[in-house]
Design a protein around this nucleic acid. Structure first.
Length: 273
DNA sequence: CCGTAGACCTGTGTGC
DNA sequence: TGCACACAGGTCTACG
């Protein structure tokens, strides 16, 4: 579900409400949720520690706890971190009681989400976390970097944007939006684009993500921020979810296709190969 | 190395 | 109304 702007919004909302709070109790009801250490140990590690920092890296939420414990959360498709359980919510998978009386809930309809809690030096399998590429809003993510990666790959440029080792945080929505903004066909072979085009794409990625963060993320269906509110960027989407509707730029009907197994929407006129 | 299909889950929407 | 099927914002593995 959430891509970079949604995770950024969640982290921003939760930070002032979590920072400095001590975890009193951790209770995980879904055995699929915890990846490291085993569930019982995980539940025993958090209590008694204050939350020192909460930040985002790619689509991961990174929480630093007292005593050098790092708590890592990936929401995957439908995960939510909430400070209040909405009435009728049937998918709570874990609860974390905090000093002061608040409770941080983890809810997840499809149960794809993951959590880890590890100390320095532990051999925890952190999935893709250790191999994340540059943050798209940092200067490390540049046209030069994209070009150097693209040179060796023939895969569709959209697949490049979705590869978290190439750039951390883009998903299906913002990949389509950035390609539209850059005027690039999502199926173009990566190694056939020019440096000029990669400059446009790099800038488009930054612009689209900035605007989406400003808009507090995109709520297509499931996404909610840390306080349970929907985002606002769905009203600004140019192509995602608009297959068959008219391009807002040139009035051509938007086309759809599959790339890398993901549904893809683009304008056949504004994004010619 | 590359690309695709299937897997992990549960729910919703669509068409017959 | 019931049922089957496609599809969903993410990622990993197996396989050709």
């Amino acid at each position: 579900m959430p891509e970079l702007p949604e995770v950024e919004t969640i982290v921003t909302d939760l930070r002032p409400r979590l920072q400095g709070r001590k975890v009193l109790r951790a209770e995980v009801s879904d055995p699929l949720l915890v990846r490291f250490p085993p569930k019982g140990q995980f539940e025993a590690r958090l209590p008694g520690r204050a939350i020192e920092a909460i930040s985002r890296r790619g689509k991961y939420i990174v929480i630093g706890l007292e005593g050098r414990l790092t708590w890592l959360i990936h929401l995957r498709m439908t995960g939510r971190l909430l400070l209040a359980l909405p009435p009728g919510e049937a998918h709570a998978r874990a609860r974390f009681d905090l000093a002061g009386g608040s409770v941080l809930w983890y809810c997840d309809l499809r149960r794809f989400g993951d959590m880890w809690a590890w100390f320095p030096g532990e051999d925890a399998n952190l999935g893709g976390f250790l191999h994340l590429g540059p943050e798209p809003l940092s200067s490390d993510f540049s046209a030069r970097w994209l070009c150097s990666v693209a040179a060796t790959r023939r895969t569709a440029v959209k697949n490049l944007l979705l590869d978290q080792r190439v750039v951390a945080g883009l998903g299906n929505i913002y990949a389509d939006e950035a390609l539209f903004a850059a005027g690039i066909h999502p199926g173009t072979p990566s190694n056939s684009l020019s440096l000029r085009q990669y400059k446009a794409l790099c800038q488009a990625v930054k612009d689209v993500l900035q605007a989406a963060i400003q808009g507090r993320g995109t709520t297509f269906k499931d996404y909610r921020n840390g306080l349970g509110a929907a985002g606002g960027y769905q009203h600004s989407l140019q192509v995602y979810g608009r297959r068959g509707q008219l391009c807002l730029c040139c009035k051509t009907p938007l086309a759809g296709c599959k790339i890398g197994g993901r549904s893809t929407v683009y304008c056949p006129h504004c994004q010619r190969r």
